[in-house]
Amino acid sequence: MFYIHCPYCQEYREEEEFHPRGEAHLMRPKDPDNTTDEEWGDYLFFRKNPRGVHHEMWVHSVGCRKFFNITRNTVTYEILETYRMGEQPSITAETEKVRKEQGVQTADGGWQTIGAQPESKALNEETSS
């Protein structure tokens, strides 16, 4: 059970009141006429599935009915922060402190939960500390 801080209501509410709405910060291609099929496909269908810090869009459907963003660790389920639409996250997978404290494995480089492979030894050593 999550206890989620809604940035618009400015207080914590039960998870029951919310719905997840997928990955956050998806940008529609700026010039649709000159966008390749591959770019469109990536934009429409392909989503990140990182092991570790992930940015998601949620909606406070029973409540203020506003969309907002959550930074969440997909391994520990810990919610690191919530922030309004249009804002940028202050915590990302690259944030050193988060990587150290939570043993987060970086989300970049297509490192997925299934068939996960460490990209480098250095990364492995850092997470194990």
Binding site: C9, R13, E14, E17, V62, G63, C64
Partner: peptide, 10 residues
């Protein structure tokens, strides 16, 4: 005053 869940309604 809040909007919240009431049994299975809101």
């Amino acid at each position: 005053g809040v909007t919240t869940i009431f049994a299975k309604a809101t």
